[in-house]
Design a protein around this nucleic acid. Structure first.
Length: 250
DNA sequence: ATGTCCGTAACCTACGGA
């Protein structure tokens, strides 16, 4: 099976790029983040064979799971956190969760504590599942797990995304029983998934690895890569998709 | 290297968020 995750930075603005990508990439399941709408373009993706589970209420956030192998047991609830930042569904043999973790903004902003609390709820939520079942949690986690996951760690002093607390929150998800599937990079030596729109960051490959595919060991990985082409040119998101080829042990 | 882009509210520009 082919599975992907992509922070599209508005599904409405991205549709001219998203639909051709969907048709060409032909993933069985896609986790989408930052849809930035209450009305996901369901008919447009249905024309390509996809069912949709979407959680979105307006101009910010919004997450979705698109699947051409079935969508069941949809859950939009993230206990105590009403913003639409998580949706999960059973897609054929796979349980899939799309997450958009709060950014955190700055270390002294209440949003940073909200981010850590949101992570804690996500970790507790895993306890309703079994690490032996085929499970994938993917999306924009807004954390760089190591210093090598940013283009220059000296630019991140007193910044979010790289603090020990944020990294520990990611480690806690992995320690529950999830594998961090590291994709082949699109350029250079590091598999960045996000580049700021500003200052030619993309062309200099000044990026960050903040989008992750986490999966239980019964999801056997055959290949994984960053789809850098999707970040190129006019009308792109500031994130690139991560695409993985997997087989589910039966 | 605060240089771009998104949606929205309210008006052809400013704003919050990232």
């Amino acid at each position: 099976m082919r599975i992907a995750t992509w922070n599209v930075n508005s599904i409405g603005a991205r549709l001219p790029r998203f639909l051709p990508w969907l048709e060409e990439t032909a993933p069985d399941v896609v986790a989408v983040q930052e849809t930035k709408t209450a009305a996901f373009p369901v008919a447009e993706v249905a024309a390509l064979g996809y069912e949709v589970a979407h959680s979105g209420d307006g101009r910010w956030n919004g997450v979705a799971v698109l699947s051409r192998i079935g969508v069941d047991q949809v859950d939009l609830v993230h206990e105590g956190h009403p913003e639409p930042r998580l949706v999960s569904a059973q897609c054929g043999p796979l349980h899939v969760t799309s997450v958009y973790v709060p950014n955190g903004r700055t270390l002294d902003d209440p949003h940073y504590l909200y981010k850590l609390a949101w992570f804690e709820t996500l970790r507790r939520r895993l306890d309703r599942f079994d690490p032996a079942q085929p499970l994938m949690v993917m999306g924009d986690f807004n954390v760089a797990r190591t210093d090598e996951d940013v283009w220059d760690i000296t630019k991140f002093v007193e910044s979010t995304h790289v603090t020990p607390a944020e990294r520990a929150a990611m480690d806690a998800l992995v320690d529950w029983g999830l594998v961090d599937i590291i994709p082949r990079p699109g350029k250079g030596d590091r598999p960045f998934t996000y580049w700021d729109y500003r200052a030619g960051m993309f062309h200099k490959d000044f990026g960050m690895r903040i989008d992750y595919v986490l999966a239980t060991p019964s999801v056997v990985v055959r290949d994984a890569w960053v789809d850098r082409d999707a970040r190129k040119g006019k009308g792109s998101s500031d994130h690139a998709p991560v695409v993985v080829e997997v087989e589910v042990a039966s």
